[in-house]
Amino acid sequence: MTRKRKRLYIVLGGLALLGVASALVLSAFNDNIVFFYSPSDIAAKQVPDGRAIRIGGLVETGSVKRESDGVTLDFKVTDGNTALLVAYKGDVPDLFREGQGVVAEGKLEHGMFRASTVLAKHDETYMPPEVVDALKRAGHWQGEPPKQSSAAKP
């Protein structure tokens, strides 16, 4: 391999890497840049049934139920204004909890959301458990999720 050719290949390799980088940026700038939609977005956008989307919000407190088949998990995802019922078959991540952030991939089906994947989204708070307990005892804990939505209360 001549040196010219070698240089050519190295330059092309560098350009290819750059191309990949730019392509990633561009594709991210399109649809992927918003990773998920909130239940209010979904309601406002009139998203058709069957289209693959991601929704995100908080798992509404008291809404998580196991269906009678023992496999399917039902829960509501809320953004404080609108709540959307989600049905999901499969394992949930360790941080999947009531009141915690969640992102679900799947599609709408007759006004509810059938999820194929459920991811947990945690917030930027890091604290030892004792501090949280102390804050809760003192009534200063502000990390609780919004307790809203009429029908969801058990």
């Binding site: 991540p93 941080l95 991811l119």
Partner: peptide, 9 residues
């Protein structure tokens, strides 16, 4: 372990 995925875009 936390989010339930190795990678997302």
């Amino acid at each position: 372990p936390m989010w339930g995925t190795w990678w997302v875009w």
